[in-house]
Design a protein around this nucleic acid. Structure first.
Lengths: 161, 161
DNA sequence: ACATCTGGGTTCTGTTTTAGAACTCACTCG
DNA sequence: CGAGTGAGTTCTAAAACAGAACCCAGATGT
């Protein structure tokens, strides 16, 4: 089922990893500090066989890792990898959308910039113009092959992670 | 199936609207200019009954609108609302993730800042610190009730849409 | 030393979604 | 009047999901 004729697009690739009803919620739980099978199970209300399968897939795709946290009864817990943490922008975008476009959305927790405690915004950033902007200023252009990093006359990156 | 005990969280709300295997791809197709039933069908390779159901749900949730584009045989097309366009950050986040964390991801089109053509970045922005930052600097805090816009000593918003 | 508990699963049986192809319906065009 | 067109519906079969019960390896209590 090709999306637009060509090979699986970027979005489709990501959706194949986290595009089911549970994976994103699992990642969110993990970001909140949950690590163990039973805790995921209870926190999410997910059926056990499905949790098993999802964790396995997230591990396979490098989103989480399974690490033993004790031996004797060898027990494992699941932690986000860097790639898993890098899903945050997706989560934040989902939260923001519901906050701005939901009827009576209750949002118990706010997302803030850790150092200063100010509620964060999410924006698109143009490094050349050095400005943020909204969705209407986005355009999609064909990317030519072997594009050997043509742009090289701009000051610096947006900021440090 | 409560996620963390309380009412449906923001993420869950958004996922109930676009959290299936097709809705996001439908929105993406719409952003690329597709409007008509058969075109969605062909572009996505989605089964017709499912497309029917999804479009109906997207309309119900204010993501798209169904507008007649001719009468006599009254024919309808589907267009994104502002709320639908506001899903762009989600799409961009999904694209970016696969670009940065996929094995051999092919990305035929690049997303650029329309006015200048520079490839865009997506970042978190703190209006107080006036800086962008990455996922590791995010913290979630309990939001107290009736929070009557307590913060009022910061210059301006990140930028204009 | 036996019973019970804990944590991380697996097996089983429904129910719900999804996929795919074929069909309908209202109209237009040649 | 026969062949399209566009936007769906109606089937059927295949896959995903939910829920409860079960399993296994050790630890712990008595």
């Amino acid at each position: 089922m090709p999306p637009s004729g060509d090979a699986p697009s970027a979005i489709e690739h990501t959706l194949r990893v986290i595009g089911d009803r549970w994976s994103i919620l699992i990642v969110r739980a993990a970001l909140r500090g949950i690590r163990r099978f039973d805790d995921f199970c209870e926190d999410l209300g997910i059926a056990r066989p499905i949790l098993t399968e999802r964790l396995r897939r997230l591990v396979r795709n490098g989103v989480m890792i399974k690490v033993p946290y004790q031996d004797h009864p060898v027990r494992y817990e699941y932690r986000l990898t860097d790639a898993g943490i890098a899903l945050s922008p997706v989560l934040v975008a989902l939260v923001r959308w519901s906050e701005e476009h939901a009827p009576g959305a209750t949002t118990p927790t706010a997302l803030v910039h850790a150092p200063c405690g100010t509620e964060l915004e999410q924006a698109f950033w143009c490094r050349r113009c050095r400005t943020t902007f909204g969705p209407t200023a986005i355009r999609g252009v064909e990317r030519r092959q072997v594009d050997g990093d043509s742009a090289a006359d701009m000051p610096d990156a947006p900021a440090g992670h």
